[in-house]
Simulated assay, not measured.
Amino acid sequence: MKYFTSPRFFVLLCLTVGLANASCNRHFVLRKGGMYTRFPMDSTITDDPAFVRLYAPYKQQLDAEMNRVVGRTAVALTKPGNVPETLLGNFFADALLTEGRKLHPEAEFSFGTKGGLRTELMQGDITVGHLFELMPFENELVVLELSGASVLQLAQFAASTGGQPMAGMRLHIANGHAADIRIGGAPLDTARTYTLVTYDYLANGGDNSRGLENPVNRINLGKKVREALIDYVSGLSHDGQHINTKLDGRITTDE
């Protein structure tokens, strides 16, 4: 795995920093008749031994941490695009809810999106690097208190997009619409307020999500989603358990 540690990356970084420090302007304008030199960022760039020696200790530390095994999955956690419920989505949503409840015990369900999960996890050892690849963003856990009407909107969004990762919530998709919506095993009550664990990207309107834009209350938990995933997997490993996520029918469809 490469975590931006190649010499080419550092050359590009140095050039970028140099340009950023060269001027306070927001942009550069190429003057008429101006001269420029093109620097191709490819295999023609050779390693600078002095520079390699400089960053080598940091790269070793980074590689050691990224290769650290935090757990193991007994099944491949995949996310085929043509089904409403996936093993990867269930794993992710279960992790959000479990770790979210440690910080906010009143949390009732969790929600994410398929697009936010950037890789699959193959059967076998799970390293810190695998979880960085799964969630490479700086997203943080958020608790939202939602009206029942907003939860209905969220369920309809999930149904209209073919199903999304969720835990503590179940629904049936019929002709692209959500039906038989249940939170914690009980039918959705639009007169109630519910407590959701998600992440700031979605809470801020990312992925064109619906139902999250007008929460009754919002609590930022101050923990990155990636850290929550690492803690979830590490916790299972500490208890002598492997990940053994199953498809449990939390999202069903007529098709």
Results as ranks from 00 to 15, higher is better:
E99A: 05
Y201L: 10
A76N: 04
R68L: 13
V83H: 09
T252E: 12
Q61E: 11
M166R: 01
V216E: 10
T190Y: 03
K102M: 08
G184Y: 11
V29F: 10
D125G: 06
V151S: 00
R210K: 07
H27S: 15
P136F: 12
Y55K: 06
V83Y: 05
L77T: 15
E145S: 13
F51K: 10
Q123C: 13
D200G: 05
A191E: 07
L229W: 01
F28K: 06
H104E: 05
M35Q: 14
A56F: 15
A20C: 10
A56P: 06
G185L: 11
I173F: 05
A178L: 00
G240L: 03
N220V: 04
F9S: 09
Y199I: 00
H104V: 08
Y36K: 11
T98H: 09
A95I: 09
L134I: 12
G205A: 01
H27M: 15
Q164L: 06
R68K: 15
M166Y: 00
G162A: 04
A76G: 06
F51D: 06
V52C: 10
A174L: 10
F137Q: 08
L77H: 13
L103M: 13
N82G: 14
L97N: 05
G129D: 07
I243K: 14
R226M: 04
G116Y: 06
M169H: 12
F51W: 08
D125N: 12
T245D: 13
G184M: 03
D42Q: 00
D189P: 10
V11M: 09
G34M: 03
G33N: 05
F109E: 03
E255L: 11
E133F: 03
H177R: 11
T73M: 00
E108S: 12
T78M: 03
G33K: 04
S23Q: 09
L196W: 01
G163W: 07
E133S: 06
D180C: 02
K114C: 09
L154F: 07
G115S: 05
I230G: 13
N175A: 12
D47Q: 01
Y199V: 01
